[in-house]
């Protein structure tokens, strides 16, 4: 049996710094954070860091595609359970293709829009090249590469419902909350 990858050596301080990067990303869509994270088979460093920082036994985490390799690591370090299906996931991890259609994930309810999934989308690259984004956290406008602008435009149209995305690529981290408006041009 192979040894599990490590988690945090100093959880209070490392998770605090990781959260600040995640919060900055979510508060300012289009900005790209660079964060060091643990080496975990099946996950980017940024995705592994997010999971360690945000998940616990109350948050079912769906691991799709290659990220399923990290199930034992995640269970050991956070206790996050495996949801029966996407509709019960608090978090879901994987490439855009592996995550499947967005409509499978909870988007919250009109009374509780916060009860929606957070998707951690593993990308080959994140760059400042893509559709024009506006909305909260963006002073004028910003451009960022998105996995599927059309599907995400539909997600934004559900506002205040909808899923929220973290985009991860190696140690790079960005976010796309449902509040971000995505222009039609590219």
């Amino acid at each position: 049996m192979s040894a599990l990858a490590a988690g945090f050596a100093n959880p209070p301080e490392e998770s605090a710094r990781a959260f600040r990067a995640a919060m900055q990303a979510m508060a300012c869509p289009g900005t790209i954070q660079n964060i060091a994270g643990p080496q975990v088979p099946g996950l980017s460093a940024a995705a592994a860091l997010l999971l360690l920082t945000l998940t616990d036994s109350t948050t079912p985490v769906l691991l799709t595609g290659n990220s399923a390799e990290a199930r034992n690591w995640l269970t050991f370090h956070t206790g996050a359970p495996e949801p029966a299906n996407a509709a019960e996931a608090s978090f879901a991890v994987g490439t855009w293709g592996d995550l499947g259609p967005l409509k499978a994930y909870p988007v919250g309810t009109p009374d509780y829009p916060d009860r929606s999934a957070t998707l951690i989308v593993e990308m080959s690259d994140i760059s400042a090249d893509g559709p024009c984004l506006t909305g909260p956290g963006i002073e004028t406008e910003v451009r960022m590469s998105l996995p599927d602008a059309d599907a995400l435009r539909l997600n934004a149209a559900l506002y205040p419902l909808g899923v929220d995305l973290f985009l991860t690529s190696g140690t790079r981290l960005a976010a796309l909350p449902r509040s971000t408006r995505i222009a039609e041009d590219t």
Binding site: M23, M26, D114, D164, R178, S179
Partner: peptide
């Protein structure tokens, strides 16, 4: 906090 930021 993250959900709060997503729905200001």
């Amino acid at each position: 906090i993250l959900k709060g930021l997503a729905v200001p």
